[in-house]
Simulated scan of single mutants.
Amino acid sequence: MSFGDEHGHGNDPGRTDDNFGGMGQTRTRLPDGGTGDGYGGARRPPRSSRSLIAMVGVVVLLIAAIAFANREGGGDDTSASTTGGGEGASGPQPTAASGVKPVTGKNGGIPSGFAKDEQGAESAAANYAVALVSADILRPDARGGIMSQIFAPDKAADLEAKFNAAYDKAFLDKIGLDEKGNAAEGLTYVSRTAPVGTKITQFTEASATVEVWCTGVFGTAGVSSTNPVTNDWFTMTLKLQWVSDDWKVESFAQKDGPAPVNTDRTASNADEISKAVAEYGGFTYAR
Rank of each mutant, 00 (worst) to 15 (best):
V210C: 10
V217R: 05
N231L: 07
W233P: 02
A221Y: 04
T226L: 08
A221N: 07
E211Y: 06
D232S: 15
G222F: 03
C214E: 11
V229P: 02
G222E: 02
S207D: 11
T230S: 14
A208G: 12
W213H: 12
A208W: 04
T215V: 10
V212R: 00
V210F: 10
T226V: 10
S207E: 13
T230G: 11
T235S: 10
E205K: 15
T230E: 15
C214M: 12
G216L: 02
G222Y: 00
T215P: 01
T220D: 04
F218S: 06
T237M: 05
N231V: 10
C214V: 13
V229A: 04
T230L: 12
V217M: 08
W213F: 13
T209N: 14
A206D: 13
P228A: 11
A221F: 05
V212P: 00
T237C: 05
M236E: 14
E205S: 14
V217C: 01
V223N: 08
P228L: 09
G219K: 02
T235Q: 06
N227A: 09
T235H: 02
A206S: 14
T235C: 07
E205T: 14
S224I: 12
A208E: 09
G219W: 00
S225M: 01
W233T: 09
N227E: 12
T220K: 08
W233N: 11
E211I: 15
V210K: 07
D232Q: 13
V210N: 08
T226M: 06
P228E: 13
V229D: 05
F218Y: 13
W213L: 13
V223D: 14
E205Y: 09
W233K: 04
T220H: 06
T237E: 03
D232W: 09
F218V: 08
P228V: 12
D232H: 13
T215M: 10
T235Y: 03
V210Y: 09
G216Q: 04
A206W: 09
P228D: 14
V229H: 04
T220V: 14
A208T: 10
V212I: 13
M236K: 07
W213V: 15
N227I: 01
C214N: 14
E205P: 05
T235E: 01
S207Y: 05
F218I: 05
M236G: 12
E211H: 15
V210S: 09
F234G: 01
V210E: 05
T237A: 10
E205Q: 14
F234Y: 13
V223E: 15
T235V: 14
G216S: 09
S225L: 02
S225V: 01
S225Y: 00
S207A: 13
W213K: 09
E211W: 03
G216V: 04
W213D: 14
S225T: 03
F218R: 03
N231E: 07
A206C: 05
T230H: 11
V229L: 06
V212T: 12
G219E: 02
N227T: 04
T209V: 15
F218N: 08
T215N: 10
T220P: 01
W213E: 14
V212S: 01
T226R: 05
C214F: 11
T215E: 09
F234M: 11
T230C: 07
N227D: 14
S224Y: 09
N227C: 02
